[in-house]
């Protein structure tokens, strides 16, 4: 199947800074695609290049096989939910939603029906006559969504759509967005800096850093089998440990003084990613060793787990997330670390 969106060597420079650096990316029809990165990673620039708000320095944007690189926003089959929502403050909710249809000169009865339909879809009926200033944050977000969806775009762009909502509403809205995406079958491209959000919602994620797409994959693949140190660290904050190959799927960790199994063979010196929640902590040396040991430096209580910082005998510091650790190690006490054989992920870059 041909991709719905194809970015080819897309580059955008603002003076000296490169906000998008030779990005090549395919997004399929019906995907809920996430652009994930820290602030300044270029994810919003990429979204704005898709929407037509920025002109690329180099490269092309194709949507549904059509080169839209030179098209302004008002001629693209995309619609955007802005981070600030950008609702027109002088218009009612219904007028905001009808704005795009009015620009397209759709006859009023037909437009009214469409507005009605989409208001029902995002649960806004009753509120049509209100002004944006009379709405709550969650309601505003739904108006922004309705205003974009009413035009039935091929692609819906969402710029940090949940960042202005409080935690409880955020989770609810995540499910709402997923429901809408499933019901409408429209391709969503969503920008977020929140890895949990991206993990929970997206069918695929592109992790970005310094204008480049570092890695693309399903949330599970990115989480469980990151391909590089940046992604392993960025998603879930894995421990990154120097490693040298000693055999097929086996490495030595010089800093810890132990050998262990890894997912893939390392061709040369590299690293191993070890997620904090896959490591176990114990006072006694576990079986199957030798296991590395160290001194607990700090413990932070997180409710469903505790986060330990352990200074290993070799000097490196590792993070361990665990709950119900036997013996409840306290700061200053010694503890052994161990992990299942499939936990360490080999990284060669």
């Amino acid at each position: 199947m041909a991709p719905l969106i194809r970015l080819e060597g897309l580059t955008k420079r603002f003076g000296e800074t490169v906000a998008a650096d030779d990005v090549t990316l395919d997004i399929l029809e019906g995907e809920l695609f996430g652009l994930l990165g820290a602030s300044g990673s270029g994810k919003t620039t990429l979204l704005r290049l898709l929407g037509g708000f920025e002109t690329p320095t180099a490269g092309r944007v194709l949507i549904d096989g059509v080169d839209v690189t030179a098209l302004p926003p008002y001629e693209r089959p995309t619609n955007m939910v802005f981070q600030s929502y950008a609702l027109f403050p002088h218009m009612t909710v219904a007028a905001n939603i009808a704005f795009g249809l009015k620009q397209a000169r759709m006859p009023k009865p037909e437009a009214d029906a469409r507005v009605e339909e989409v208001m029902e879809l995002v649960k806004l009926t009753e509120l049509g006559k209100r002004k944006p200033s009379e709405l709550s944050g969650g309601q505003r977000q739904r108006v922004a969504l309705a205003r974009a969806l009413v035009l039935r775009p091929k692609v819906l762009l969402l710029d940090e759509p949940l960042s202005a909502l409080d935690k409880k509403l955020r989770e609810h809205t995540q499910f709402e967005l997923m429901r809408l995406q499933r019901e409408l079958g429209i391709t969503f491209v969503i920008v977020t800096h929140d890895q949990d959000e991206a993990m929970a919602m997206c069918s695929r994620i592109a992790v970005m850093d310094m204008g480049k797409v570092i890695e693309t994959g399903t949330p599970r693949a990115i989480y469980e089998r990151p391909q590089c140190r940046f992604v392993a660290d960025f998603i879930g904050g894995a421990n990154i440990i120097d490693a040298e190959p000693v055999g097929p799927s086996r490495v030595r960790l010089p800093a810890l003084g132990v050998e262990c199994a890894v997912t893939d063979s390392l061709p040369a010196k590299g690293w191993v990613a070890l997620r904090p929640e896959r490591i176990s902590l114990s006072h006694e040396a576990p079986a199957g060793g030798p296991w590395p040991a160290g001194q607990v430096e700090a413990v932070a209580f997180h409710g469903d787990f505790q986060l330990y910082r352990v200074r290993m005998d070799g000097g490196v510091e590792l993070r361990v997330a665990a709950s119900n650790v036997p013996g409840d190690p306290k700061p200053g006490e010694r503890a052994f670390l161990s992990w299942p054989a499939d936990a360490p992920v080999a990284l060669s870059r």
Binding site: P72, P73, M80, A86, F88, F99, Q103, A104, L151
Partner: peptide, 13 residues
């Protein structure tokens, strides 16, 4: 908010 004009353009204006 400059996004207001961008939103208008995005919606076909």
């Amino acid at each position: 908010d400059p996004a207001l004009e961008e939103a208008a353009a995005d919606l076909g204006a």
